[in-house]
C-alpha cells in the first residue's frame, strides 16, 4: 500500500507538469487546428530564461518573493516570445495548406532549440535549490514541499483557466473561434487577437511547466524540450486534442500511468506501454477521452 500511494504521489507530480504543457498544445490546436511543435522547446527555453532571471536580475536571492517574481517574469517573457512566434511562423501561413504550417512549426522548434544552445551553451545548466528541501513522512509515504507546490499551483492554474474559458466573455469568444473562425468573425470577434491570447496563455502555462522542471529536477539541457513536448503532446491526444479539460485529464493519466508502469513492471517498458496506451485509446475513441465525436464531412 505504501508503494502504491508513493507511486500515486510521484505520478500526480509529473502528471501535473505534463498537463500544464499539454494545455499549450491543445489550446492552439483548438483554435488554429495546428500542432505547435515548437511548444516543447518553448518550455525548455522558459527554464533557461528563469535561470537567467534568477542569476542576473535577482542577484541570486533565494526567498519566496524571489520565486514568485521569477515565475511572473518568466511567464511574461515567454508570452512575448509566444506572440512573436505566432506572428513570424504561423500568421503568414494562416491561409496556406495545413502541411505548410506543420513544417513551419517543426522549423520553429529547431530554431528555438538551437537558439537556446547558442545563448546558453550546450552544457547542462543547473538550477539552484530555490525551494528548501522539506519532506513529510506519512507512514512510509514521503512527500516533499516542492511536490506540494507543483500540484497545488498546477491545479489552481488549471481551474482558473477552465473558469476563464467557460465563464467569461473572452472565454466565450475563444470557444466560438474554435468552433468556426469565419462565423466568429461575422459575430464581431477579432480572431487575430483571440489567437494572440491563446499563445499568451499557452506560453505562460508552458513557462510555469518549464520552471517546475528546473525546480524539481534541477538539471536542464537545451534539448530537453523534445522529450517533455512529446509526452505533453501524447497527453493532449489522450484527453482529446482541442479539449481543455481533456488535456488536464490526459496529463494526469499519463503521469500516473508512467509511474505505475515504471514502478510495477519496469522503467524499461514505460515508454513502450505509453505508446500502446495511446494506440488503444485511439482505436476505442479516435477523438480522445473527452474529445467530441465529430462526423467527418465528406
Amino acid at each position: 500500500m505504501d508503494i502504491f500511494l508513493q507511486q500515486l504521489a510521484n505520478g500526480l507530480t509529473i502528471g501535473s507538469m505534463f498537463a500544464l504543457v499539454a494545455l499549450g498544445y491543445t489550446m492552439v490546436y483548438g483554435v488554429m487546428k495546428l500542432i505547435n511543435f515548437a511548444h516543447g522547446d518553448m518550455v525548455a527555453a522558459s527554464a533557461f530564461v528563469g535561470l537567467t532571471i534568477y542569476t542576473q536580475i535577482m542577484g541570486q536571492a533565494a526567498s519566496l518573493a524571489a520565486v514568485i517574481v521569477i515565475f511572473l517574469l518568466t511567464a511574461a517573457v515567454m508570452a512575448c516570445i509566444g506572440i512573436i512566434l505566432e506572428r513570424v511562423a504561423y500568421r503568414p501561413l494562416r491561409e496556406a495548406p495545413r502541411l505548410s504550417a506543420v513544417v513551419s512549426a517543426l522549423g520553429a522548434s529547431l530554431v528555438i532549440q538551437n537558439g537556446i544552445m547558442l545563448i546558453w551553451g550546450p552544457r547542462m545548466k543547473i538550477f539552484p535549490e530555490l525551494v528548501p528541501q522539506v519532506y513529510w513522512d506519512f507512514g512510509g509515504v514521503v512527500i516533499s514541499l516542492i511536490q506540494v507546490i507543483i500540484l497545488a499551483l498546477s491545479l489552481f492554474l488549471m481551474v482558473s483557466l477552465y473558469l476563464f474559458v467557460e465563464k467569461t466573455r473572452m472565454g466565450a469568444a475563444i470557444r466560438a473561434s474554435s468552433i468556426d473562425q469565419d462565423a466568429a468573425r461575422l459575430m464581431g470577434i477579432n480572431v487575430n487577437s483571440i489567437i494572440m491570447i491563446i499563445f499568451i496563455i499557452g506560453s505562460s502555462l508552458g513557462a510555469v511547466g518549464g520552471l517546475f522542471i528546473g525546480l524539481y529536477y534541477r538539471g536542464i539541457t537545451f534539448n530537453m524540450g523534445w522529450q517533455y513536448g512529446l509526452y505533453a503532446f501524447i497527453a493532449a491526444i489522450i484527453g482529446g486534442i482541442g479539449n481543455i479539460p481533456g488535456a488536464m485529464l490526459g496529463g494526469m493519466l499519463l503521469g500516473l500511468f508512467n509511474a505505475f508502469i515504471a514502478g510495477y513492471i519496469s522503467s524499461t517498458w514505460a515508454d513502450a506501454f505509453t505508446f500502446i496506451l495511446l494506440i488503444l485509446i485511439l482505436i476505442v475513441r479516435p477523438t480522445g477521452l473527452l474529445g467530441e465525436r465529430v462526423a467527418e464531412k465528406v
Binding site: I3, N10, M224, A262
Partner: peptide, 19 residues
Amino acid sequence: DKIKADSQNFTPVLTNVKS
C-alpha cells in the same frame, strides 16, 4: 534495476528500491 538515462524522473524506480 535499470533507469532510462536523461529521463529525469527516477522516483518510480527508487520507490521500488525503497521497498
